[in-house]
Amino acid sequence: MLKQPEVSHLIRQLRQLTALSQEQLAATLGVAYSTVNRWENGHIKPSALALNQIRNMLKELKDSPEITLQECSQMLLEQYFPETESTVR
């Protein structure tokens, strides 16, 4: 399970990778803007369901035609979800 500082970094890196604002990421994940804001600022941790949605977003980005998105999403998956990625290969 991810620790709080890791979650904050993951959310920020995901937003930077996708060029989404907190509001846009919240809409994509089906949560409130304030929820994403609190995740990113380290006030709360995402639920298991939200983390699964984030992991799925990264997996989808891995299939992007853009090489940079593929590489960066793969790196984030390996960094933040190593146990699930090692079993997928």
Rank of each mutant, 00 (worst) to 15 (best):
N37V: 09
L10P: 02
S64A: 06
V88D: 14
D63E: 15
D63V: 11
S8G: 11
R55H: 15
M1E: 11
Y80K: 04
A50V: 13
T28S: 07
E83L: 06
Q16V: 07
Y33A: 04
W39H: 01
L20A: 09
S34E: 08
N37K: 09
R89P: 12
N41M: 02
Q4L: 13
G42A: 06
S73T: 00
R15V: 05
E83D: 08
F81R: 01
W39N: 00
Q4A: 13
Q70T: 05
V7W: 01
L49T: 15
N37R: 08
E60W: 10
P65G: 06
T87H: 13
L51Q: 09
V36E: 05
L2F: 04
N37H: 11
S86G: 05
N56A: 12
K62Q: 15
I44V: 15
Q13A: 07
L77G: 01
L69T: 05
A32P: 07
K45D: 10
Q4C: 11
D63I: 09
E71K: 06
R38E: 12
P5Q: 12
P65M: 07
F81D: 01
V88K: 15
I44Q: 15
K3D: 14
T68W: 13
Q70K: 06
S47F: 01
V36P: 02
R89C: 10
Q4R: 13
Q70G: 04
Q22H: 05
N52K: 14
Q53A: 04
M57R: 02
T68A: 14
T68F: 15
V31D: 12
L76E: 00
F81C: 00
T87A: 15
S73F: 00
L14Y: 00
K59F: 10
L58H: 04
S21K: 05
R15Q: 12
T18F: 01
V7E: 00
I44C: 15
E78W: 01
